[in-house]
Design a protein around this nucleic acid. Sequence first.
RNA 1: GCCGCCUUGGCCUAAUGGCAUGGCAAUUGAUUUGUAAUCAAUAGGUUGGCGGUUCGAGUCCGUCAGGCGGCACCA
Length: 635
Amino acid sequence: MKVNYDGKLVELEEGANGFVLAKLFDAENKKKDVAYEINGEAFDMSHPLKDGDEVKFIRIGTPEAFEILNHSTSHLMAEAIHHLFPDAKFGFGPAIEEGFYYDVDFGTYVLKEEDLAKIEAEMKKLVKEDARFVRKEVSPEEADEVFKDNPYKKELIAEHSEEGISLYTQGSFTDLCKGIHLPSTGYIKHFKLLSIAGAYWRGDSKNKQLTRIYGTSWWTEEELSSYLELLERRKKNDHRKLGKELGLFFISDYGPGFPFFLPNGMKLKNALLGYWHEVHRRHGYLEIETPTMLSRELWETSGHWDHYKSNMYTTKIDEKDFAIKPMNCPGALVTYNQSLHSYKELPIRYAELGHVHRHEASGALNGLFRVRAFTQDDAHIFIREDQIESEVGEIISLLDEVYATFGLTYKIVLSTRPDSDYIGTVEFWDKAEKALGQACKDAGHDYDINPGDGAFYGPKLDFKLRDSMGRTWQCGTIQLDLNLPHRFGCFYIDEHGEKKEPVMLHRVAFGSIERFIGIITENYGGAFPTWLAPNQVDIIPVNPEKHGEYAKKLAAELFDRKVRVRVLDGEDKLSYRLRQSITSKVPMAIVIGDKEIEEGAVNVRRLGEEKGKSLKKDDFVSALLKEIETRKEAF
RNA sequence: GCCGCCUUGGCCUAAUGGCAUGGCAAUUGAUUUGUAAUCAAUAGGUUGGCGGUUCGAGUCCGUCAGGCGGCACCA
């Protein structure tokens, strides 16, 4: 029998199920490959080959192999749990982006953190046995018999009875699984169980909650420990921790989910908003502000009263219902309708830093990432139908500019027309989706498609940012809205003097200012670039009595140029005051002593550098101002 | 909202049911400092709130609040 193995034609003897593979595998590929693709489809290494098969091995080190490793590790964990807790019933146990989990019903037993160590120890024991993962295709009846005590697996068996059921057995443990798996448990060596959580069976809050155990599995000890270090780094850079340490914000028990900004947080926020204003002015936006609270009639017109009321804070004024805005759109529409518009005016770009309130579930709250009151850097853009592509292109260029400023890369996802419950015509949706996609391409960006995930009122582009610690965030979004302009009766006068309904685009760049501050705080690890840093320069006179006056004069000069500057002239040693500057993550510390005064110089030490460098005072001031203005290191 | 865990001076933290630790920060005094912590003294607590068990509760039980890890939610 001949197969095409990794590009080479290989002659093999025919054998029983698994025999051909065993030959290949034992000869040279032991523990280098974990599975293979036969004619483009992934299979276990035990899957028999046929004459003429195109075989490509899934090699250790590839993302596919990582997924298989983690999937198999979840099964190994299930086996260990089965040994320790024979009554445990298993639900789902998949691989996820950075590891795996398994959902387990422990009955009345409450799993403790300490149990994870026991399970890990049992897993290590099982690894030594190096049991093969053996696949068996069975009938639904046979499978039902195997899992007769497990309602979760039985539910899955019933659902998949059409397409065929497969079982995997390693050692004495059998699980329902469609595969694929490693050849044997001996491949699994470097893993760690990370946490215990609750999770609804099948992700439905009406169902019972199972115990979910998260873990991660890697090929080498180095990979595992560097992943654990990454987790440590994420914890160290947690914006909630840094926010406290750097005095940026806090959330009081008096208002869960309602953040307070401290002086340092306000300096950062104002720097960010200053940038926001600059970019939006350049891109032709008109800033507006709409009221925080508006009457029930408005929210009925917009549809929020019917569809979003459970998330809205409402009250009565003079016996009339009012609601605090959860979104800014209705205000923008009312603003648009305030005057008559010509086709020549469009696009009209209304930008609004709108402070919105939403009643988020208590369990959803999370630092600045998920709050109940936040500022959207919103914009509502009114355009003609023929302007969709060019305007979306214009927005993408703005987002490109903004994200590049923070060193964030991103991926675009296009969400298209839902299968049902959408408004507008299919023709319009098709045209709009094409325009959104084309705008991405024109801007030089690829995009993924999320079919059917558009809102009922229009398709959208989501921007998934990737931060320095490998996590993704959805910040920017561009949504086409066919609904609200219609509900509010918006129109413009076209070239024939007739009323025409405009298309509206919603878009945000930062998403929420609060969340974005959380993201960049973590991304920079609290060490903000000079233009953003709450305090930009610390001046440290070597001897405050002797050099304090010069230091204060320099501080006054910088203060007049709008630099956020402090003078550290306490009674402590220079090294102690320098340490204060470093721990508060101020980007530049300037030391002033005899030498500097004599030479008209300053000694600048950047945060993170071992020592300072000497610059002429005037050169430093102009370089500093340039650095702040251009938002790039200037010396 | 749901499952589990947590809550000790401003911050971090210790305490088999038996005297509430220690560090940082703060205050005071001495020291006047050249690139990451000078020395000493002082003050700071109804151990998140309320209720219970006990001779005795930071510790055990109940309850409320807030937080954390997830899930659900995020038109």
